[in-house]
Structures are given as C-alpha cells and as structure tokens.
Nucleic acid binder design. Structure first.
Lengths: 207, 207
DNA sequence: CGTGTTCCTGACCGTTTGGTCAATAATTAG
DNA sequence: CTAATTATTGACCAAACGGTCAGGAACACG
C-alpha cells in the first residue's frame, strides 16, 4: 500500500525472523493468547528489539494476516476454465489439502481469527474474498449449464472443499488422536477419499 | 465423578448463570482471551462472586468442556444399525448441521480448544472419542462388506461430516460474509447440498 | 424472634503484559 | 579512522489480570 522504505540487510532479515516466530506463536495461541515474550523467545530477539521493528503486537499480527491472505487464496484464483471442469475442481481441493499438510500454521492462524469473529479481516472477507468466490461460483454455474458438472450449489461446494481440506490442518491434533498415523501418511488416504467424494458429487447423472 | 454436593436453589441458579456466560465468552475469545471480568459482566455477577462458586477460571472452563463434550457426541452415538445405512449416515450429518445452527457457541468452544492443540481435552480425544469413532468405523465397514454403502474410508467420511457441518458454526462469520443470508435461511441450502453430496458418495456403484 | 449458614462485595495483592526510553553497541559511509 | 546512523538492551512503567480476604448482607431454620 505504502512505498516501502529502503530496507537494510539487517532489517530485512530480522523482520522475516520476527514474522516467522510470530506465525509459530499466533497460530497456536491466537492473538490474545500470544505474548511478545513468547514471540521474542521464538525469534531469538529481545522484546524491545521486536518493538524496534514493529510498532506494536497488533502491527505484527495484522502484517502477518495481510501478507499471508493473498498467497492463501492463490489456489482458488488458479481455478479457471483451462482444463476439464471436474479435474479443475478436484485439483483445487487437492492443492488445498497439500497446503494443509505443508502450511498448517497458516491455516490455523486464519482459523483462530475467523472462529473468533474475524475482527481484523472482516473487510477482506466481505470484500475481495466474497468477490472472488462469487466469480468462481459463476464459473461453476456455467459448467452446470453446459452439463459438464452435476447440479450442485457452487457456494456450498466451495465451503465443503475449504472445510474438508482445512480440517486436516486446523483439527490436526484431533485427526492424529483418532488415527494415530505415522507422520503424514494419512494425507494420502485423505487425498484419495476427497478425490472420490468430489468426483461422485460432480459427475453429472444420466437424466 | 465426585458425589455432588447438596446444592441450594441459589447455587444451582448462579452456577448455571456463570456457565452460560462463560460459554458466551470462552467460545468467542478462547481460554486465554477470555477474562473473568468479561464473564462476570456477562453473568451479571461480581468477579469475587464467580470465584465463590468456582475455584478458578480454569475450573469454569474445564467444567464447561467436560459437561458439553458428552452431549456433543450424542448424535454420533445414535448412529447405529437400526435403519437404512445411507439414511443413517445422512441423518447424522443433518443432525450435526442442526447443532451448528442451534448451538454454534458450543461448536466454537471446541474449535478454539482443538485448533490450539486441545491441551485440556487431549485425553478425551485419544480415549473415549477415538474408541467411539473406531466403533462407528467398524459398523460402516460392515455396511461396505454387505454392499449397502459404497467403498469409502470410514474415518475420513466421519471427518468430512464433522468438517462440513461444523464449518457453518465455526466459520460462521466467513459464511455470512460471503453469502449475506437472511437469518439462517442458508442452512436449508446447506442441508440440501450435504444430503446430495453424501448420498452420492455413499450410494454403491454397479460393478 | 435469634442464630447459624450461605451469599456477596470492596479493597487489595502479586504477576503478567504491552510498551517506553535512555544509554550503549554495532554497522555503515566518507 | 571518524562520525553518523542503525541496532540492541536493561531497567522501568502503567494497565490488566487472576485471585484473596475480611467483613457485611441475605437467607434458612428453629
């Protein structure tokens, strides 16, 4: 939004270190639960030093959110009419599942924020996100009109993809508590399950 | 667990008032985020009065969790072999969806707890919940063997039901931000969507 | 009524928390 | 090397927090 200041080498490195530590702490403690001391410890810096690079705890948090929200939505933006509709949608779900496996902290960061009412990113949800989702829903309605996918509610389809994939990151401890998997092995089972689930949901039925 | 003390009329009323207020606050602020002052305000009692009825903030929270967890799992316990398998499973999903509509705070309370690593109910998850889920998964495997439902992974099916239904409670603000529904109208659409989704997933295919 | 018990609260306490600041150390530029 | 700039920190502060306690109010019961 603003013109970026000319960052020194040290500034760049330390700001990244702080944001990485903040992601670690905020994602598992939520905004109120996290403390600057925790973040400072995780970053290997002193607390006053954190506040030399960021004006406040809130500033660290909001910078994290806004930086990550964009990349978080990239897979949905990539959903377009370039391939077979059913493969496109299943591919989107699988990409989201991979993100739950590879970036669970980011998922949990947003989960915490939204469960608690999204006080700091409600604008983003009601604005850009809503527009993006509506746009993809329109695309799906075209596919339905062309008979390429079954008649299902596009919005709720998107919700169900978010829910089923993010579940493996956000409720990770529950999944692990029940399955007791070796490492990330269960993600392959989840991928197979979701592929089958959505393929069946999307395949048009003979009339 | 303990023999219950003989509760006076006032004790019963105030403990209920406190737990209701605590549910309101804890569910939207998580444990660390909630303060005794907030709960006292919501309950219409003074802070020392809260601590007259409960020994600590933690005690209020854990009592809430353990009290609610049992009823929370009732729908899953009710899943049995009494009816048509597909109707049973879809009925379970719809019951969970109704709970998301009617008791969103309870859902969010657990969501907050689990996203943050379930530090206070991990035993419950790895113990009784795991046992219950495994038991229902066995039931489903029997249905699969009998050819009554399609071949899908029972555990991941249960996860997907949890995820898709609780999504409407836990991520309520996101859903509302995108759909801008009138009241709870969108829950009927969600019910229709989920019914179709899981019916297609469960209906056995001709070989 | 009196008296024992339950209920309630204002004032207070120690700790944690986000944040400040003056002083010092490290780095960079000429 | 020197001087200016940037980076770092120990000591500190005010507010918020969970919790305590002595004493008084309300209530139950004979």
């Amino acid at each position: 939004m603003n013109a970026e200041q000319p960052q020194t080498r040290i500034q760049k490195k330390n700001r990244e270190t702080i944001l990485e530590a903040a992601l670690e702490v905020f994602s598992s403690e939520s905004f109120r639960g996290a403390t600057l001391d925790q973040i400072a410890l995780a970053a290997g810096l002193s607390k006053p030093n954190l506040l030399y690079y960021f004006p406040s705890k809130e500033a660290i948090y909001t910078e994290l959110l806004s930086t990550l929200l964009d990349t978080w939505l990239d897979p949905l933006r990539a959903l377009d009419g370039s391939g077979d509709p059913i493969d496109e949608i299943i591919g989107y779900a699988l990409r989201k599942l991979e993100m739950s496996r590879d970036f669970p902290r980011e998922s949990r960061l947003f989960a915490n924020e939204i469960v608690q009412g999204a006080p700091r990113i409600l604008d983003q949800i009601e604005g850009p996100l809503r527009t993006l989702v509506d746009q993809k829903a329109d695309l799906m309605r075209h596919w339905i009109a062309e008979g390429k996918i079954a008649e299902i509610d596009p919005h709720h389809l998107i919700f169900s993809i978010w829910a089923t994939t993010q579940h493996y990151a956000d409720f990770n401890v529950q999944v692990r508590g029940i399955l007791r998997p070796d490492g990330d092995a269960h993600f392959d089972d989840a991928a197979a399950f979701l592929t089958a689930l959505f393929r069946r949901a999307l395949t048009p039925r003979p009339d």
